[in-house]
Amino acid sequence: MTAQSSIKPRALDADPSAALHELVLKSLDDDQAVETVTIPLAGKSSIADHMVIASGRSTRQVASMAAKLVDRIKAETGRAARIEGLPTADWVLIDAGDVIVHLFRPEVRSFYNLERMWNFGDAPAPVAEV
């Protein structure tokens, strides 16, 4: 048996969008994101299949979650995610292709209220805290 044949296929090979979404949620959970919400966009918008919104308790936590998430996406998929807002870390946007991630400080999140803006008549699916 060669080393190549003993490697298990990565989860991203089966359904890249769902696997990327799971990777994002796991990373945010590992970094203790608060009030993580997923809004399904497949069939409703062409920008992505999933939008994930989460909060951090401080700008330092938001920046750390964002940096780690971008690194994990690169390590797992080989693709670089685009990131905006990292210097101030009040609102950080990560465009990972099929998944768009918004990370906020709580005050900024409540001001912009993206969940309400992107609600297509369906309530956003909250992600259970583990």
Score class of each variant (00 low, 15 high):
residue 24 V to Q: 09
residue 9 P to K: 13
residue 111 F to K: 05
residue 77 T to G: 03
residue 38 T to C: 12
residue 130 V to I: 15
residue 91 W to Y: 12
residue 8 K to H: 10
residue 24 V to E: 05
residue 126 P to F: 02
residue 31 D to I: 04
residue 74 K to M: 11
residue 130 V to D: 15
residue 100 I to R: 10
residue 2 T to C: 04
residue 23 L to N: 11
residue 18 A to Y: 03
residue 117 M to C: 10
residue 114 L to R: 05
residue 121 G to E: 13
residue 112 Y to N: 06
residue 26 K to G: 13
residue 11 A to Y: 01
residue 126 P to G: 01
residue 107 E to S: 14
residue 46 S to W: 04
residue 47 I to P: 05
residue 49 D to M: 10
residue 32 Q to K: 15
residue 85 G to E: 00
residue 38 T to P: 07
residue 95 D to N: 01
residue 77 T to M: 12
residue 30 D to L: 08
residue 25 L to I: 14
residue 19 A to Q: 03
residue 74 K to F: 07
residue 100 I to V: 12
residue 77 T to K: 06
residue 85 G to S: 00
residue 99 V to T: 12
residue 91 W to S: 09
residue 1 M to I: 06
residue 68 K to S: 00
residue 75 A to F: 11
residue 85 G to R: 10
residue 116 R to E: 15
residue 46 S to N: 12
residue 128 A to E: 13
residue 55 S to K: 15
residue 94 I to A: 04
residue 78 G to I: 03
residue 104 F to P: 13
residue 13 D to G: 02
residue 27 S to E: 06
residue 42 A to G: 14
residue 127 V to D: 00
residue 31 D to G: 01
residue 81 A to M: 12
residue 49 D to N: 09
residue 108 V to S: 13
residue 61 Q to A: 05
residue 16 P to V: 06
residue 100 I to L: 14
residue 62 V to Q: 09
residue 118 W to R: 08
residue 9 P to Q: 05
residue 110 S to H: 15
residue 78 G to E: 05
residue 20 L to E: 06
residue 52 V to L: 00
residue 104 F to H: 12
residue 118 W to I: 08
residue 42 A to W: 05
residue 57 R to G: 04
residue 68 K to I: 05
residue 35 E to S: 14
residue 114 L to Q: 09
residue 34 V to Y: 02
residue 30 D to G: 01
residue 78 G to P: 06
residue 47 I to E: 02
residue 13 D to N: 08
residue 57 R to W: 06
residue 20 L to H: 08
residue 52 V to C: 00
residue 107 E to C: 04
residue 22 E to N: 13
residue 110 S to V: 15
residue 56 G to V: 07
residue 113 N to I: 05
residue 45 S to F: 09
residue 85 G to I: 03
residue 36 T to V: 00
residue 65 M to Y: 10
residue 114 L to P: 07
residue 16 P to G: 13
residue 116 R to N: 13
residue 129 E to D: 14
residue 26 K to Y: 03
residue 25 L to Y: 01
residue 51 M to P: 02
residue 105 R to M: 15
residue 39 I to Q: 12
residue 103 L to D: 08
residue 78 G to W: 03
residue 121 G to D: 07
residue 35 E to Q: 10
residue 97 G to P: 11
residue 89 A to Q: 04
residue 18 A to P: 03
residue 37 V to K: 01
residue 68 K to E: 06
residue 83 I to T: 09
residue 81 A to F: 08
residue 57 R to K: 10
residue 124 P to R: 00
residue 39 I to S: 11
residue 22 E to C: 10
residue 9 P to E: 11
residue 110 S to E: 15
residue 9 P to L: 05
residue 19 A to I: 06
residue 102 H to E: 12
residue 96 A to Q: 11
residue 67 A to F: 07
residue 69 L to N: 02
residue 17 S to W: 09
residue 99 V to I: 06
residue 95 D to H: 01
residue 50 H to A: 05
residue 124 P to W: 02
residue 85 G to T: 00
